[in-house]
Design a protein around this nucleic acid. Structure first.
Lengths: 220, 220
DNA sequence: AGGCTCACCCTTACGCCGTAAGTCTCATGG
DNA sequence: CCATGAGACTTACGGCGTAAGGGTGAGCCT
C-alpha cells in the first residue's frame, strides 16, 4: 500500500513552498492562502510546511521578498531620472501581477535580502546622480510613498475594466444621494466613466510631476 | 438570578459598536479585534453584534467611515493650495491616531457617507481653485497616492522613536552582510540614525514638492 | 388584565484557521 | 543489518466568523 509506483513527488524546499504560495495568492487571493490549502497545492499535509517556514508570518515575509526579486534593479548608467522612472514602472508592474503584495507590506517589517538589494540599488542610483545624503532620503521617501500609495489606490478600486467601472458606478449612484456629492459625481460622469479612461494612466502623470520636482531640487 | 439590580447597560447601537471597535483596534491592534473580543468589550455576546452590523466586513467598513469622520474637510476659502495642504496634514494626523486604518483601506472598497463627503470636498476645492476636470483627477490621484503611501511606509517602520530605530538598526546590521548594501548603510548611519532625525518630517517635503508641481500645472 | 408582537440578546454548533506535540517511514552510512 | 536522522504525517487545542434557533421583556391592542 505504501511504496507503490507513485510519481516521485519533487522534494519540498523553502523555494518551492514560496513559489506555490505566491502563485496561489495570485490566483485565489491572499485570504484563500491558508497553511492547509497551501499544503494541498503542494500535495503535502499542512504541518509539513513547518519544516521549511518557521510559521505563517515567515511565509508571508518570504513571499514579499520573492516579489521584490521580480523587480528590475535600477542602474545609474542612463542617469538617475531614467533609473528612477524605470524602476517605478517595474515596481508598479510587479504589484499589478501580485495584487495581494501591497496589502502585506503594511505589516511585514523586516526586509529580506531582495528587498534590501532593491533599496540599496535605488539609493545608490540617486547618490551616483549627485543627490546629497539628505536629498536622497527625501527623494526616496516621496517616490516610494507615491508608488506604493498608487498601488494601494488602484487595489482599492472595486473594478478593473471600464465596463466594470460603469456597472459599479451605476450601482453606487443608485444607492447614494447623488446631489449631496455633486463634485464627486461630476468627476465620475464627465471624466472617469468616459470611454477610454483608465485610472492606471494617472500613474505616469504623478510620477513625472515628482521627478520634475526632484530635478529642480537637484539642479535648481 | 436574572432580573437583579444590574447596572442598566446602555443599549447597543451601530454607533456604539463602531466606537468601541475603533477604540479596541487603536489600543490592541487590528488582529486583536474579533467579534468575540468586541462583544466582551461591550459586555455582550458576539452574536448580539450581528443585530447592528451585517458581518465583520460591514464592521470594518463602518470603522473606516468612522475614521473619515475625524478628518477635517477642506474648504476652498483660502485657496486650493492651503486647503489641500491642511487636509493632507489632517489625513496624516488621523492615520497616525488609527494606525490600523491604512491597512484596511486596501481591501474595503465601497465608500461610506463620510468617505464620499471627504472626496467630494477635496474635488470641490480643486475645482473652485480653477482646476479643470482632468486636472482635478490628476491632482486628486497624486495627492491621495502620496498621502496614503506615506502612511503605509510609516506604518511599515518597525520602530516609532529614534531610540527604537537605533536598536532595530543595530539588530539588523548584526544579521545582514553590511558590505553588500553600502548605500543603504550610508543612508542609515549618516542620516536616518542621526540624533534628531524623524522620518515623519519627510512628509511635508514630499507634500510641498507635489503642491509645487500642481501649482505649475495649474498656472504655468 | 391578558395576550401578542417584536426587538434584542443569548446559546449552541459547524467548519475553518494556525500550530504544538508526538509518531511513522525510509534512505543513508557504519 | 541495523541505527540514525530527516522529513512527512496524525492528532488535538483553542480561537475564529457566523448560521440557526431559543428565551425574555417592553409596549400595544383588545
Amino acid at each position: 500500500m505504501t511504496g507503490s509506483a507513485r510519481e516521485p513527488r519533487r522534494p519540498l524546499t523553502r523555494r518551492r513552498v514560496l513559489e506555490v504560495a505566491v502563485d496561489l495568492a495570485d490566483r485565489k487571493g491572499l485570504e484563500a492562502l491558508s497553511m492547509r490549502k497551501l499544503g494541498e497545492a503542494l500535495e503535502v499535509e499542512a504541518m509539513s510546511l513547518y519544516g521549511h517556514v518557521a510559521n505563517k508570518d515567515d511565509l508571508l515575509d518570504g513571499m514579499i521578498d520573492a516579489v521584490f526579486t521580480e523587480i528590475d534593479l535600477p542602474s545609474a548608467d542612463d542617469g538617475w531620472r531614467a533609473a528612477m522612472r524605470q524602476r517605478a514602472l517595474s515596481v508598479r508592474a510587479v504589484l499589478r501581477r501580485h495584487r495581494w503584495a501591497i496589502g502585506l507590506m503594511e505589516s511585514r517589517t523586516y526586509p529580506g535580502p531582495a528587498t534590501l538589494a532593491h533599496h540599496d540599488a535605488v539609493i545608490g542610483a540617486l547618490r551616483a546622480g549627485g543627490f546629497s545624503v539628505p536629498q536622497t532620503a527625501h527623494a526616496f521617501s516621496v517616490l516610494d510613498s507615491y508608488i506604493y500609495g498608487f498601488a494601494l489606490q488602484e487595489k482599492g478600486l472595486p473594478f478593473q475594466t471600464a465596463d466594470e467601472a460603469a456597472e459599479v458606478a451605476q450601482a453606487m449612484f443608485a444607492q447614494i444621494p447623488v446631489d449631496r456629492y455633486p463634485h464627486f459625481v461630476e468627476l465620475a460622469t464627465q471624466h472617469a466613466l468616459q470611454p477610454g479612461y483608465d485610472y492606471g494612466e494617472e500613474f505616469e502623470f504623478g510620477l513625472d510631476l515628482i521627478l520634475d520636482g526632484l530635478e529642480r531640487l537637484h539642479r535648481p
